[in-house]
């Protein structure tokens, strides 16, 4: 039945008035989207709020939805825009990094990635999460530069291809590929003893 339907078909069904289709779609993507948000903003409460806002945007924008791209691409693009809005209000230094790298080529992106600040290890919640593997992974992700972390999360949580990540983030394909390579390399280094 509907459980076999693709995301796009479920979204079209919801646009036509099938609320159960939305429930199914939500169940599929609630976890990945939430993890993307919580890893990016670092605050579970704020991530929960942003998560609701993103889904409300999906609900409001259902009448304009067209299956021109995969549903996760559309969903994570909305989430990314909502994050940028959040940065615009509360973390302008991160916003400047997001905006300045929008049209960079691969080399410039790599240089910027090297200069991005890592998450502080002295943050209380980071210190508290070091006790188990999940906490270790979370810490490793927090240590990644935001743009590298974003590409990694879009690939892992959203299941987006390089081209889809490039579209969602507004960057070139090579820049995306470079960021993902750097992110994986740093994670491997940080989690070497767990692999």
């Amino acid at each position: 039945m509907q459980t076999d339907w693709s995301d796009e078909r479920l979204m079209l069904a919801y646009r036509a008035g099938d609320a159960d289709a939305f429930t199914l779609l939500y169940r599929r993507h609630r976890g990945p989207l939430y993890r993307y948000l919580v890893r990016q903003c670092g605050d579970p409460a704020l991530a929960d709020e942003l998560h609701q806002e993103v889904w409300l945007k999906v609900i409001k924008g259902r009448s304009q939805y067209e299956p021109l791209a995969r549903f996760p691409t559309w969903l994570f693009r909305i989430a990314r825009h909502r994050l940028i809005d959040h940065y615009r209000q509360h973390a302008r230094h991160l916003l400047a990094q997001y905006e300045s790298t929008a049209n960079d080529d691969a080399d410039e992106g790599d240089e910027l990635i090297e200069r991005l600040p890592a998450a502080s290890e002295e943050m209380p919640h980071v210190l508290h999460e070091r006790h188990d593997t999940a906490r270790r992974i979370s810490l490793a992700l927090d240590e990644l530069p935001p743009l590298q972390r974003e590409v990694f999360l879009l690939a892992e949580e959203g299941g987006l291809t390089l081209d889809e990540i490039a579209v969602a983030t507004g960057c070139g394909r090579e820049t995306t590929k470079s960021r993902l390579r750097y992110a994986l390399g740093k994670l491997r280094t940080s989690l070497r003893d767990l692999l």
Binding site: T23, Y26, R30, I59, R188, L195
Partner: peptide, 27 residues
């Protein structure tokens, strides 16, 4: 290997209250 490790321990979920609010808004 990194991907598998990450997925194995990626357990964060949104709150149940948030789920209910979103589904109620959709309906």
């Amino acid at each position: 290997q990194v991907s598998a490790l990450y997925r194995e321990h990626a357990r964060d979920e949104p709150s149940a209250a948030g789920d209910e609010r979103i589904i109620a808004a959709a309906r």
